[in-house]
Design a protein around this nucleic acid. Structure first.
Lengths: 265, 265
DNA sequence: GAGTGGTCTAGACCACTGT
DNA sequence: CAGTGGTCTAGACCACTCC
């Protein structure tokens, strides 16, 4: 005979069903935990354990001092890989054109004036991971650039950390100052100023639970996953010219990759 | 003054540091919870709460009746989008060639005989989500195909559910029987038998916590995220010919997308 | 059978939010 | 201030794994 599922699982299953059937509507507040614990005839900690399960599945959201709510499905930011070509094309436009719009606006459809931007540059040495990504010796000098873009006081759309080869970009001193960000035309234009044409971009996607820092920065709760993208840019000579690690909140982001196939015959 | 972090957070922070510093090595077993609770001078439930935090971050793994272990970083299966072109090319090879290898071997490097395969076909009607994906009316008849591929008794690499337009594939009755799986040459060859050439594939990637079913099927523990890929295949006439939803364990999978850019001048 | 983690209880007190 | 969820305790019993 099959062993009985634990009480908190059974309660979670019932709540899950009520949410999926629309019996509990998105945004709706649940009765107080003490009350529901009594309804389901379990102790308060046991009922809270059931709630925890559904929170980690992203179905419920608890607000301290207010109540527990059915989580409305959230608006997703889309990021399409055609963006890479768009960024490349933009890099050769006249400055006034480049100044008009940035990559985040392209992703979100928001106006450039709605967005707050923050950038910080640091000089660092390649660890083994980055050395392998750039195919250079460990300890090679890199320019590390951290970015945050957010709408007003909202949490940022994603956390971005980009690396460039210091020896490559130092020929244009403007590229070493974070005060010049946001740079009209973005990284591809920055690379163009030192004679680099990007030929291909490789995005490597994984998912994992967020670290504590990422939870606070992105304003996500425990149990929501993050998408981790390592973007590697390769120039026309086959050299790796940029490596960027980008963290997106998994519940608010949709990455879209289109692959065109060669025609038959 | 900054409010004090809760006890379980402070313990989690200390354990996290010990793991990152290598003081607790990957794979190492921790002392019993009762013992550690005494060491940290907290009650057992409080200490267990700290352990729960680190489990949801993927740093610890508890085995019932055995102990709690530092989670070793796991081997990742890579899936490259060049696979789509490879699958298309394979569809036109002679049958003996097609029979030699499948898509999973391409991803994992394993031999076809190491792999167990399972497929199940069902006829269903399009819900609003699928109807939108196919750009057909709600209720349109679809062929739903579920797949599992695993190595021996291990958990499957991913869960895959694919949909085809029933009216499109019914002209070849072989395509309606799951007994014919694994089909040499895969979906692209199946589509070729009804005169379809796939022109582009769109992969949409998101991440979320796994459902209970996915946890048991993929043998992943609470707190490990899953990568959700919706793969949409479009033929040379612009029609959507296949929609597939694929679930990968986030800690064992790496999706790689290469985007070639047009050359300047 | 010994030792481990998993479930469950009863109850106290704290921290946060809105009125 | 009332009502909510968050933290913490002490202790009982169960389920699993391994010797």
């Amino acid at each position: 005979m099959r062993p009985m599922a634990p009480k908190y699982e059974r309660i979670a299953t019932r709540l899950r069903q009520m949410i999926r059937d629309g019996e509990l509507a998105p945004g709706q507040r649940l009765p107080a935990e003490t009350e529901l614990a009594a309804t389901f005839e379990v102790s308060l900690p046991t009922f809270r354990q059931a709630v925890k399960v559904l929170r980690s599945e992203g179905l419920l959201e608890a607000r301290h001092g207010v109540g527990t709510f059915v989580r409305p499905s959230r608006h997703r930011t889309q990021r399409h890989n055609s963006r890479h070509q768009w960024e490349k094309d933009r890099a050769r436009l006249p400055e006034e054109e480049r100044r008009k719009t940035g990559a985040t606006e392209y992703d979100t459809g928001l106006e450039i004036n709605d967005l707050a931007f923050w950038a910080k540059y640091t000089v660092t040495a390649a660890n083994s991971d980055l050395a392998a990504a750039f195919k250079v010796p460990v300890g090679t000098t890199l320019l590390q650039r951290d970015y945050r873009t957010r709408k007003g006081a909202d949490a940022p759309f994603g956390l971005s950390r980009s690396y460039l080869l210091y020896n490559l970009v130092k020929t244009n001193p403007d590229l070493l100052e974070d005060g010049r960000e946001p740079w009209p035309g973005g990284t591809q234009h920055q690379l163009l100023t030192v004679g680099v044409e990007v030929d291909a971009i490789i995005d490597t996607v994984t998912a994992r639970p967020p670290t504590i820092e990422e939870q606070t920065e992105l304003d996500i709760h425990t149990g929501i996953a993050v998408l981790v993208v390592r973007k590697t840019s390769i120039d026309t000579t086959g050299r790796v010219v940029e490596v960027a690690d980008i963290i997106w909140p998994g519940d608010r982001t949709e990455l879209i990759f289109e692959t065109k196939l060669e025609r038959w015959k």
